[in-house]
């Protein structure tokens, strides 16, 4: 046996130091999340009262008031975005998984990747140019269009993945019974993948529920109940933004409470999506 040399000791020290640093990095990364959750809860929970949820804002400068208009606004904006975006995403994904190994499929996938990568503020500009400019009005419709454009590639890519998980043998079994192909897809393939499609859609909804940038110059925000789809509308993220940068102490308090509410909604969406995927242990579901 050679005696343990200085080189080995040094290498072991390096080993310990590097993994120590790696552990510190992990601790920092995780503590960011926990500090964030704890701080927002601490700042927000005390102001999150029924009055806050059910009332309209008071005139500027008067303390009190609530964010009922923004809650309704976010539900409407995201609801219409889902109605516009989810069908396009799911049916586009159906094409990709069932027929898409051709140049159309390539083009669709490529464009979905492009859409997925562009900043949401750019999507906002797009919605501004195609909806706000022709109608000469900031509007709820423009906000929903922007959110829908963000949702489509998200829903498309996740739905495609889940549709591809449906075994070929299942399709073949149905076809062998003489069922036409479109019916196989509509009655067998899509229902089999429905849990996954729902998960993807839920994730997309919770993602756009927190989007602010594309709403700033489309939905614009308002301090009253919304006046229909062609008028400006309030949204939770917009309220957080405008209250956070305002000079009023009381609006800061309300921004924290609204942030707490939005955080709960978004995290609940994410956790629900995860829970939806859990019982898929035995494979294809059904």
């Amino acid at each position: 046996m050679t005696p343990p040399d200085a080189g080995l000791a040094r290498r072991r020290r390096t080993n310990a130091v590097m993994f120590g640093l790696a552990a510190v990095c992990t601790a920092v990364a995780l503590s960011v999340l926990f500090v964030l959750l704890a701080y927002i809860t601490w700042k927000g929970v005390s102001s999150l009262t029924w009055a806050f949820l059910s009332r309209l804002p008071r005139p500027v400068g008067e303390p009190g008031g609530g964010i009922a208009h923004a809650i309704v606004g976010t539900v409407k904006l995201v609801g219409l975005a889902a109605v516009l975006g989810v069908p396009v995403g799911v049916l586009g994904a159906t094409y990709l998984s069932e027929y898409g190994s051709n140049r159309f499929g390539f083009a669709i996938r490529y464009c979905a990747d492009v859409l997925n990568g562009i900043p949401s503020i750019v999507t906002g500009i797009f919605a501004f140019t195609v909806v706000v400019l022709p109608l000469k009005h900031f509007s709820a419709l423009a906000g929903s269009v922007a959110l829908a454009v963000i949702m489509i590639p998200l829903v498309l890519r996740s739905s495609e993945e889940f549709l591809r998980l449906v075994p070929v043998s299942v399709r073949e079994a149905a076809l062998a019974l003489g069922v036409p192909r479109w019916k196989v897809i509509a009655r067998v393939v899509l229902p089999t993948a429905s849990r996954g499609i729902m998960t993807g859609s839920l994730l997309a909804v919770s993602r756009v529920a927190g989007e602010t940038a594309p709403l700033v110059f489309t939905a614009f925000g308002a301090r009253h109940w919304d006046q229909g789809w062609l008028q400006p509308i309030a949204a939770l993220p917009l309220v957080i933004y405008s209250y956070a940068i305002s000079p009023y102490e009381d609006w800061h308090r309300q921004a924290w409470a609204a942030a707490f509410l939005l955080l709960i909604v978004v995290l609940a969406g994410n956790l629900a999506a995860r829970a939806l995927m859990q019982p898929r242990q035995e494979g294809t579901g059904s």
């Binding site: 069908p87 396009v88 049916l91 586009g92 159906t94 094409y95 990709l96 069932e98 027929y99 898409g100 159309f104 499929g105 083009a107 669709i108 464009c111 979905a112 492009v114 859409l115 562009i118 750019v122 999507t123 797009f126 195609v130 454009v149 489509i152 590639p153 498309l156 192909r181 479109w182 897809i185 509509a186």
Partner: peptide
């Protein structure tokens, strides 16, 4: 018809990227 219909929805995405 079904294939064309799903293709149309897929092409919406291409259209959006180009239109943007």
């Amino acid at each position: 018809a079904f294939r064309r219909m799903t293709l149309a929805f897929g092409l919406v995405i291409v259209g959006l990227a180009v239109a943007m």
